[in-house]
Design a protein around this nucleic acid. Structure first.
Lengths: 122, 122
DNA sequence: CAGGATCCGATCGGATACTG
DNA sequence: CAGTATCCGATCGGATCCTG
């Protein structure tokens, strides 16, 4: 197949779906927190900072469902659960880096645009 | 690999913010619809397909606020409003292409992972 | 320690009706 | 044609309490 052709619009829906999966408030931050290796629940919670336990649970569960992270339970006392990125999760984190670069490069301009726009609305 | 200038976590919040801006259901699709040039309101609505007038209005307004699209009003009868991408909007659409490639390449695997996961949960 | 359950407000997103 | 206004359900996200 020739992938150099323009995505017609079928791809567009796929991108959109992936984006709304990944574009929530926490997913990327959790993935980034896991880049350096296996982490435990409260370890991730500390790393991300500001995330509630509820949202971390949901986010990890969805990432596990999508095959981005792998969950390993150790039945010790106290119980211990490790989360680590799968190869798929790593490849996502690589792609996220490009977006990170773009965001870092343009966030200042965007913030300025918003100020200008809001000022004009008065 | 070149790991210099590692974004510690300050950038991470910026990315997260950009992502939740761009990661909603419609923003990217609207941007993509505008790539081929200036479009009018109902033209975009037709191109995107499935979007409500409400959400298109909101999405365009936010994109305008962020400086991604430019809005031009022509006071004719009937009134005519053109939307076109700014250079900033174009640069976003380029970045979105990388994500599009990733999504297209992995959506099948992800869908399969979900099926497996859901099957195990029964 | 790792969550599940529940309550709550805020935002997302669709549908419909109305306006200049 | 290009919106605005309003109502509505679904989901997001935080806080708190409870459990193995």
């Amino acid at each position: 197949m020739d992938m150099t052709a323009k995505p017609a619009g079928a791809d567009c829906r796929a991108v959109s779906e992936i984006l709304s999966r990944v574009g929530d408030k926490w997913t990327i931050q959790v993935v980034v927190a896991l880049r350096s290796g296996s982490q435990r629940f409260n370890g991730i919670k500390r790393r991300v900072g500001g995330i509630s336990q509820q949202m971390l649970t949901r986010t990890l569960k969805t990432l596990e469902r999508d095959g981005m992270v792998e969950r390993t339970v150790r039945h010790t006392t106290p119980p211990q659960v490790d989360y680590m990125l799968t190869p798929l999760g790593h490849s996502l984190s690589e792609t996220a880096r490009h977006l990170a670069d773009w965001a870092a490069a343009h966030q200042g301009v965007i913030a300025g645009n918003r100020l200008q726009y809001d000022a004009r609305q008065l």
